[in-house]
């Protein structure tokens, strides 16, 4: 069943704002440092809840294309495809398409950073 508002992302945001405001102001030293770490972690969760599903779908499509898997009709797990891709890079079986592999890997790492730490990425020229 559909949960009532706030959504999961909205709830996480509420907790993050509480930590960022009241808790940061009331703490110092290590506890304050760990509060900042927790605030960052909640920001990741918010972005993952919002953008994660789209990123995983795109990743799955790209990985399946490189591995030449038909994923229509069943749920080929993105993580399983990445495990297969990692093993194939190691054993050299994708050496005939390394440029495509690199493009995919770069795109996936970029999507991970868009969740984990968007500020780490250089400005997107297409944006």
């Amino acid at each position: 069943m559909t949960q009532d508002r706030p959504t999961a992302a909205e709830l996480v945001r509420a907790v993050r704002e509480f930590l960022e405001g009241d808790v940061m102001a009331a703490t110092e030293g290590r506890v304050q440092f760990h509060t900042r770490v927790a605030v960052n972690a909640l920001g990741m969760i918010e972005r993952e809840l919002t953008d994660g599903p789209g990123f995983v779908a795109a990743e799955r499509e790209r990985a399946a294309a490189i591995l030449e898997h038909d994923i229509s009709g069943h749920a080929g797990d993105a993580r399983d495809l990445e495990i297969e891709l990692a093993a194939a890079i190691r054993n050299g079986s994708l050496d005939d398409r390394l440029d495509a592999v690199r493009d995919h890997v770069r795109a996936t790492v970029r999507e991970k950073l868009l969740v984990a730490n968007p500020g780490y990425l250089p400005p997107d020229p297409s944006a």
Binding site: F33, M44, V109, A116, N117, L121
Partner: peptide
């Protein structure tokens, strides 16, 4: 158990990005 250690797992992507740049 530590929130600091836990979040380091999500910094791995930064090093992956850096390594791809070096390549």
């Amino acid at each position: 158990r530590s929130v600091e250690l836990a979040t380091l797992g999500r910094r791995v992507a930064e090093t992956e990005w850096d390594l791809l740049q070096i390549l």
